[in-house]
Amino acid sequence: MSKLLQVLWVMLGATVLVTGLLHWVPGDPVDYILGEQATQEARLKLSQDLGLVDAEGHPVRFVGQYVGFISKISQNKLLSYRTREPVMTRIAARLPYTMILALASILFALALGPLLGIIAAWRRGEWPDYLGRFVALLGISLPKFFLAPMLLLVFSIYWPIFPISGATDGLMSLVLPAFSLGFAMAAVQMRFTRASILEVASQDYIRTARAKGLSERVVYFKHALRNALMPVVTVVGLELGSLLAGAVVVEKIFGWPGIGLLLLESIEQLDMPMVQGVVLVIAFFYVVMNLFTDWLYDQIDPRVRVT
């Protein structure tokens, strides 16, 4: 319950921050959007659209602006400054793309990372270990906006296997974006899994299992692995932030029509209501997903609930 209260508080704060920053930022957003030579009518119209002044042209205090913003966005009446279309309708149309991309990246990371970690720990100090650790180091240090164009160069231009841009070729167009976005998470998964298996391997209950005469395979896969894979969930929670922020970069490179690309398009068009909408939706998903991973961790590891 207190977790739920915290989420409510954080979302309240996030909406205040997002509207407040636009309000308190030095300089007039109207000047910024229209340029300084705009006519008086255009300025008044935009100020009203942004909720900066009321119908008679009197400035609205921040509290009034905030209440106006919340009531508009909750009734889906917050309109894009460019297309006059409700902001949330547009976001809802683009959101599934980002969700598919994020989900595919997480699944890819979960498929690859723990597997590499298990192999590296199983063959510790031999070449699979060194290879796995090198790949993980690459995954952690290569920025997404470097990895993604490199993949494009190799797999779309040199060997034209995957499409260069867009989301029109079904699964084929998902492969490179999901790989670029998920590779860093896979690398962290690999490191955590490896470290955690090595830690578990030195514990008493593993020695006991060996002493009982169980085969190495049973000890390793049945006793050690089960406990060693706990951190996998933690890593998804930890890396979720950089995944969501990285989605903006990856969507730009691959022309993937999700909300990250929508955010960049709206920033370029100075479509502030749309920008605010997208930022809040991403923050909302992030907070909810964090709550979910916390809950999941509780479910998997009974010790967390006790403490």
Binding site: W9, G13, L21, V25, P29, S242, A245, V279, A283
Partner: peptide, 24 residues
């Protein structure tokens, strides 16, 4: 610390991106 919690609601560089977008 409750104020810090609010800033942590924005993943990665998202908040910096938003601030950079509304400043020149």
């Amino acid at each position: 610390m409750r104020f810090v919690d609010i800033l942590l609601a924005f993943p990665g560089i998202l908040l910096a991106l938003y601030i950079a977008a509304i400043l020149k």
